[in-house]
Design a protein around this nucleic acid. Structure first.
Lengths: 129, 129
DNA sequence: ACGATTGTTAAGCACATACTTAAGTATTCG
DNA sequence: CGAATACTTAAGTATGTGCTTAACAATCGT
């Protein structure tokens, strides 16, 4: 039902967030609503490019906008930010459950041989053969 | 500094998450490590396609893997999941600060008697959950 | 009414993505 | 050894993305 819809939405939401410019726009809108040209000002690209980014953001549901007169005012949609955040939170909590189980297991072991468990992302794990 | 690097990483992380199949792989790996063909089993696509998805995930830092013998074992990298989550959390908290400010402002308004026919606020005081 | 401001639409281009099939490489097992 | 297993690599293809420039509204101040 809404599971399917959420999945579709998440595609669009994460896709929208997968761009530095769009993340900057979202960050800016979190400080308060802004017009299109106001949003465009910091970026070294054409205004139509920004409009396209805004379309992506609006299609994803991260941003909403309303045009009054000749100025379109954009705002962030917190619920959508929360949607993405909660997907990640759900994954993390599962991982932590697992980590808890691992720790519980290690607590039963007599020799606490320290192993690194958190590495920087791009560095491959040390092989322990 | 590391800000720049984080931004670059976030591009890759959100891009990696912007695909239903890859999110399902991450979700599966949050339950525990798995081999490539084990990961491929639920999906109606070729094994090379899954390998390509895994490369995207590994490049993003969301997944790490190690090959032992002929089987490659993949695991999730919780720190990277947290990286994405915390970016969203930071945005959300800014938005909530704003909402707090709005609510504080509304609290200072003595008479909610609407005698002006100004355009009513487009965003209601309390957001829908 | 005129011109400046603010945004929109359309077309096009270079490059990236999500697959496919086909063929190859190790590694394990009988 | 030889066959099955578990990937890996390469090449091709269709579609999507992130821009650009050019031309076109609509609205506002004077």
């Amino acid at each position: 039902m809404l599971n399917n819809r959420s999945e579709v939405d998440l595609d669009l939401v994460f896709q929208a967030l997968a761009d530095r410019t769009r993340r900057a726009i979202v960050a800016r809108l979190c400080e308060g609503p802004a017009s299109v040209s106001e949003l465009a000002k910091p970026f070294p690209m054409s205004l139509p490019a920004i409009v396209q980014h805004l379309q992506v953001l609006e299609t994803s549901g991260l941003v909403s906008s309303e045009k009054i007169g000749r100025v379109r005012t954009c705002s962030v949609v917190p619920a959508t930010v929360r949607l993405a955040e909660s997907w990640l939170g759900a994954r993390r909590s599962v991982g932590e459950r697992r980590l808890d189980r691992l720790e519980a297991f290690l607590a039963t072991q007599p020799e606490p041989k320290p192993e690194s468990h958190e590495r920087p992302p791009t560095i491959p794990p040390r092989s322990t053969p």
